[in-house]
Amino acid sequence: MNLHSHVMMPAIKVIARCGYVAKGVVYLIVGSLATLAATGLGGNNVGTKEAINHLAGQPFGSVMLALLGIGLLGYAVWRAVQALLDTEHLGHGLRGLATRLGFLISGGIYAGLALYCANLLRNAVTGSTSTTDRTAELMSHPGGMLLVLAIGIGFAGVGLRQVWRAIKRSYLKNWHMIEMSEAQQRLAEAATRWGLCARGAVFLIIGGFLVVAAIQTNPSQAQGLGGALNVLARQPFGPWLLGLVALGLMAYAIYCFVNARFRDVSR
């Protein structure tokens, strides 16, 4: 490791850990509101931007919003570092490049959420654009339907990968297991497997609706995170399904917090 890497790594570690905390906070809010909706105690099925809006409306909302925005920007930077510097040693093969591209896309999404936080702080947001509106905008351009189809397939692929990671327990190689007690390991594993499966199911639903929207040339078919949770709620045994996935998203938040504390961010 050269001198430049020695100087950069402490900063990258702090950025990555703050980023995981911020991401966990967003999913904790989404999961909590969906859990309240499933149990009939209030709350709504919301997406990430709506979750940020909810946080902004709380006491000391501006302070929390600023911290969240900084954390989300940190997560975006960490994803960019993973992609561009190949910290996971994925290589230049097709699979490695696809995974690294996924890191970049993920970073772009969370950079957008960080910008959304900044705009809220400046009172510059007059209303959030819906998934349907964004899909319609994409479809209006040449090749837009193919792009929406590709994005839908990408979401479905990420969903399948999340479930596969839960089955294979591939996340274990990223944790400093020696620093965790046996009880912490059991809790982290249980939360992670549940959380990855729940997030995977939601991403599969989002991807499926985007694919349908592209095939039918109908952007109104597209659904975001909140829409996917609403779809679950409308199924037979909907409240139970919604509750299971909502608690799973809260478990995914715990997974993010575990990463913030125990993940090896030097690779």
Rank of each mutant, 00 (worst) to 15 (best):
N2R: 06
L3P: 00
S5C: 01
H6V: 04
P10G: 02
A11M: 01
I12N: 03
V14A: 13
I15W: 01
R17L: 00
C18S: 10
G19H: 07
Y20L: 05
V21S: 08
A22G: 13
A22W: 04
A22M: 10
G24H: 11
Y27M: 08
I29K: 00
V30C: 03
V30P: 00
V30L: 12
L36Y: 00
N45A: 12
K49M: 11
K49A: 07
K49G: 00
A51K: 03
A51R: 09
I52L: 14
H54P: 02
L55W: 10
A56C: 03
G57I: 12
Q58L: 15
L67A: 15
L68W: 02
L68H: 02
L68N: 08
L73E: 03
L73S: 10
L73R: 04
Y75I: 07
V81A: 12
L84Y: 15
L85W: 07
D86V: 10
H89V: 09
T99R: 02
G102D: 00
F103P: 00
F103A: 12
G107A: 12
G107C: 06
G108M: 09
I109L: 15
G112W: 13
A114K: 02
Y116L: 15
L120S: 09
L120E: 08
R122H: 15
R122D: 14
N123S: 15
A124P: 07
T126M: 10
G127L: 04
T135W: 02
M139K: 05
S140K: 03
P142K: 04
M145T: 13
V148G: 09
V148H: 07
A150N: 05
A150G: 11
G152L: 05
I153F: 08
G154A: 15
G157L: 13
V163P: 00
R165K: 05
R165C: 01
A166Q: 05
K173T: 03
N174W: 06
H176G: 00
M177L: 15
M177W: 09
M177S: 13
M177I: 14
E179P: 00
A183Q: 09
A183F: 05
A183H: 01
Q184T: 13
R186C: 04
L187K: 15
L187I: 14
E189P: 01
E189C: 05
E189M: 04
R193A: 02
G195A: 14
L196A: 07
C197F: 15
C197N: 08
C197R: 12
R199S: 11
A201Y: 02
V202I: 12
F203M: 14
I206G: 01
G207I: 06
G208R: 01
F209G: 00
F209T: 11
L210G: 01
V212R: 09
V212N: 04
V212I: 11
I215C: 13
Q216S: 15
T217D: 04
A222F: 11
A222Q: 07
G224C: 04
L225S: 08
L225H: 06
A228D: 03
A228N: 06
L232S: 06
Q235L: 15
Q235K: 12
Q235C: 13
P236Y: 06
P236L: 06
F237N: 11
P239S: 05
P239A: 02
L241Q: 06
L242W: 07
A246G: 02
A253M: 07
I254Q: 13
I254T: 12
Y255E: 14
C256T: 05
V258T: 14
A260I: 05
A260C: 03
A260L: 13
R261I: 08
D264P: 00
S266A: 10
S266Y: 09
R267F: 08
R267A: 14
R267P: 06
